[in-house]
Computed example of a mutant assay.
Amino acid sequence: MATDFSAEIKALRATMDSVREVTDLDSLRTQIADLEQQSGAPDLWDDPEHAQQVTSQLSRANAELERVEKMDSRIDDLEVLAEMGQEENDADTIAEAEKELAHVQKAVGELEVRTLLSGEYDQREAVVTIRSGAGGVDAADFAEMLLRMYLRWAERHGYPTKVMDTSYAEEAGLKSATFEVNVPYAYGNLSVEAGTHRLVRISPFDNQGRRQTSFAAVEVVPLIEQTDSIEIPENELKIDVFRSSGPGGQSVNTTDSAVRMTHIPTGTVVSMQNEKSQIQNRAAALRVMQSRLLLLRREQEAAEKKELAGDIKASWGDQMRSYVLHPYQMVKDLRTEYEVGNTSAVFDGDIDGFIEAGIRWKRNQERDNA
């Protein structure tokens, strides 16, 4: 059946109208003008932290404006291409227009999802921690598979990442790993990945070839910024130092540079060992601790509001996604019902569909509970 380009382009423009409305381009341009004025101040770099903040905000704002304006131009070009192909009845040009239509629809869908990320911390960078759960060595192996999946996802998009801590299991895999994704909206995107992930497969570690179910937990917190008011009194922190270690218990550091930080009132624990010095690991651990306590404070405030409103619904539930490799191949999100049969692609970082479906699901949940 021939593509109705007119209807498809009309739908794209309608979506872009709502994107522009939410983005508020006039306010964005005003913000850019103000930031450009600040960035041109001769004494800007007298305060390097403030300067970094201004230049980062300016870069983000310009990228946001360019993203929307370029998409409008791309839709206009698509319309011209489609009209040319139809007027000349040129099959090659029509095929090219159909291909571009699919690309533009995907890009506009991603832009639309971005407008749904309007939570207090959604624009932040993210700190992700993966922990192996029930399932022994298979769970540890699963945790390592998830770490690779998220790092490959970030790599596909050109997002910078930094692995902050890795705790290796005895036989194979990871007990836990913590990494940062240093790009705006990383938290808004990855927050929907938080929860319990389940793997079902024939265990490569079972010499009888039995099917094994294992679990891993994913925690996602927003990276704190200088403006966040999270002060932790020193008497609330317990700090232990130890030697960093690699796979199989091999020492990778001959000094006590690794740091384990415990927040005594909440029992929150953060370990850091991937920086070169104890001072660097301590600073990194404190930053992640502040991020976790910031999210904890937000969750407590949300819980209090729910209690006042009489809302006793469970939130997302523990198990949010299943990765089945045997007896069939499928990855399925249990909240959104989104599923994919190509498990290899998912473990290689192709998870945008899950993230997009999760963001839409989360926004619908928030609307229902409002």
Rank of each mutant, 00 (worst) to 15 (best):
F5K: 06
L12Y: 08
D24Y: 06
L25Y: 04
R29S: 13
T30Q: 14
L35H: 05
Q37T: 13
Q38I: 01
A41F: 05
A51K: 09
Q57I: 09
Q57P: 00
L58C: 10
A61W: 06
K70I: 13
M71F: 03
L78D: 05
E79T: 01
V80Y: 15
Q86P: 08
E87A: 13
E87H: 12
D90V: 09
A91R: 04
E96Y: 02
E98H: 07
K99D: 14
A107D: 06
R114W: 00
A126I: 01
V127A: 05
G135P: 14
L147W: 02
A154F: 05
H157G: 11
P160Q: 07
D165N: 12
T166H: 06
A172D: 07
A177I: 10
T178Y: 07
V183L: 12
N189F: 10
L190F: 08
S191H: 11
H197V: 13
R198F: 08
D206G: 04
A217F: 10
T227Y: 14
I239F: 01
G248F: 04
Q250K: 07
S251F: 01
S251N: 09
R260M: 02
I264C: 07
T268W: 08
S271P: 03
S277G: 06
Q280F: 10
N281Q: 02
A284H: 00
L296D: 15
I312H: 14
I312F: 15
M320D: 00
M320Q: 15
Y328A: 03
Q329N: 14
M330L: 12
M330A: 05
R335G: 12
R335H: 05
N342Y: 00
N342K: 09
T343P: 15
V346E: 09
V346M: 02
I355S: 02
I359Y: 01
W361A: 06
N369L: 13
